[in-house]
C-alpha cells in the first residue's frame, strides 16, 4: 500500500494518453483522481500487482487485476505494505519441462523397438522398392559384375544358406559390384550387395559363405528396413530436441546413434550366421578366418573404438565364432571350378 497522497501518471488502457493524477490511500485500496480532483478509478488492494520499478529508478509501476490494460506510475513512492508480486513461481513450467524431457528420453529408448515393429508391418513389396532404389543408386556409381558361371555359383550358395530363413524372405537378390571395399551390405527387401574387394580378400569359399550367412540373417530379421526407419526417427528426435531443422544436427546424431544401435544387430547377425551355416552343412571356421583377415587389414586395431564403430571389434567377433564352432570336418561350400568363377566374376584373373 502507498504511504500517503502521491502524484503519478495514469494510462487507462483504452488510449495511449498519459494523465497526471493524484493518489489517495483508502482503507482497502487506492483512489486515482485527476489533477482537477475528478475520480478516475478505485483500485482494490487485493487486485494490485507490483510491476516493479520504473527503469532508471524514478518511480514504481502498478497494475490492477480488474483492469489488465491500465497502468499506473507512482512518482517517488515506497510500498509500506507488500502487494502481490508479479511473476510468482509456477510449478507448471518445471513440470511441463520434466514431462517433455521424459517423453524425449522415452522415445529415444523405445526407438529401436518401435522401428523394428514398424519394419515388420511394412509390406514386402514396399521394402523391395526401397532396396531396389538404393541398389540402383549403387549400380549407377559402380560397375555391376556378371558372368553366367560366377552368378550361378553365387546363387546356389545363397539359396543353400537362405533355406534357413522364413519362406517369404528366401528370394534373395545378390549383386556383385566392382569396388575395392572389403565389405558386403544387406539392403531392405532382400537385396545383398557384395563388393569385389571382399571376393579378392576371401581365401576360400567358406569365408565368403560366412559373410553371406551374416548378411542373410540381416535380411531375415529385417534389419535394413528397421535401420532406415530408425535413422529417420533419430533425425526427427534430434530436430525436436535442438530445434535445428537444417539437418546438420539430425544427420550427425543419426550417424552416431546408428553406430550405437546397430552393434546389437551385428552381434545378432553373427549368431544367426552360425545357425544358417550349420543348417546348410558349411563349417564356421572360414567365417572366423575372415574376421582375422579383416583385423590384419585394419592394422590390428580398428580406427574407431568399438562403441563408435558400427561393427563390434573384429577380434572379439572371431573369438565368439570360434567359441561356437562346429567341430565336424565338412566339405568346402563351393567346388574349385565354382570358386574360381566367383573370384573372377569382375573379370580379374585369380
Amino acid at each position: 500500500m502507498l504511504s500517503d497522497d502521491r502524484s503519478g501518471r495514469f494510462n487507462d488502457g483504452k488510449s495511449a494518453a498519459s494523465r497526471k493524477v493524484r493518489l489517495w490511500s483508502l482503507a482497502d485500496g487506492v483512489e486515482i483522481r485527476g489533477e482537477d480532483g475528478f475520480l478516475i478509478a478505485v483500485w482494490k488492494t487485493a487486485d494490485l500487482v507490483d510491476d516493479g520499478e520504473l527503469p532508471g529508478g524514478k518511480g514504481l509501476r502498478m497494475r490492477c487485476k480488474a483492469e489488465p490494460d491500465a497502468r499506473l506510475t507512482v512518482e517517488a513512492a515506497v510500498f509500506v505494505r507488500p502487494v502481490a508480486k508479479r511473476g510468482t513461481f509456477h510449478w507448471r513450467i518445471p513440470a511441463a519441462m520434466a514431462l517433455g524431457v521424459a517423453v524425449l528420453v522415452g522415445l529415444y529408448l523405445a526407438l529401436p523397438n518401435l522401428a523394428r515393429q514398424i519394419a515388420l508391418v511394412v509390406p514386402l513389396e514396399t521394402e523391395r522398392g526401397w532396396g531396389n532404389q538404393i541398389a540402383a543408386g549403387f549400380e549407377r556409381q559402380m560397375r555391376a559384375c556378371r558372368t553366367p558361371e560366377g552368378n550361378e555359383a553365387l546363387t546356389r550358395l545363397v539359396e543353400r544358406l537362405a533355406a534357413g530363413l522364413p519362406p517369404e524372405r528366401r528370394a534373395v537378390n545378390l549383386r556383385v559390384l566392382d569396388n575395392a571395399a572389403v565389405n558386403a551390405i544387406a539392403l531392405p527387401g532382400a537385396e545383398i550387395i557384395v563388393f569385389r574387394g571382399l571376393l579378392d580378400q576371401a581365401g576360400d569359399p567358406d569365408e565368403l559363405a560366412g559373410v553371406l550367412a551374416h548378411e542373410l540373417t540381416h535380411v531375415g530379421e529385417r534389419h535394413p528396413a528397421a535401420n532406415l526407419i530408425r535413422g529417420i526417427g533419430v533425425g526427427v528426435l534430434a530436430t525436436m530436441i535442438t530445434g535445428d531443422a537444417s539437418g546438420m544436427v539430425a544427420s550427425g546424431a543419426a550417424t552416431v546413434m546408428a553406430a550405437a544401435y546397430t552393434r546389437d544387430d551385428e552381434a545378432a547377425a553373427d549368431r544367426g550366421a552360425l545357425r544358417l551355416l550349420k543348417q546348410a552343412g558349411i563349417g564356421s571356421a572360414g567365417f572366423a578366418t575372415f574376421f582375422r583377415r579383416l583385423e590384419v587389414l585394419e592394422g590390428g586395431k580398428g580406427l574407431l573404438p568399438a562403441w563408435l564403430s558400427t561393427h563390434p571389434e573384429t577380434a572379439s567377433r572371431a573369438a565368439a565364432i570360434d567359441a561356437a564352432a562346429d567341430p565336424r570336418k565338412l566339405p568346402p561350400s563351393l567346388r574349385d571350378a565354382e570358386w574360381r568363377a566367383v573370384k573372377s566374376i569382375c573379370g580379374k584373373a585369380v
Partner: peptide, 9 residues
C-alpha cells in the same frame, strides 16, 4: 539440463 526444452522460456 532440460535437453534444450528450456530455450522457449
Amino acid at each position: 539440463a532440460t535437453l534444450s526444452i528450456w530455450r522457449f522460456w
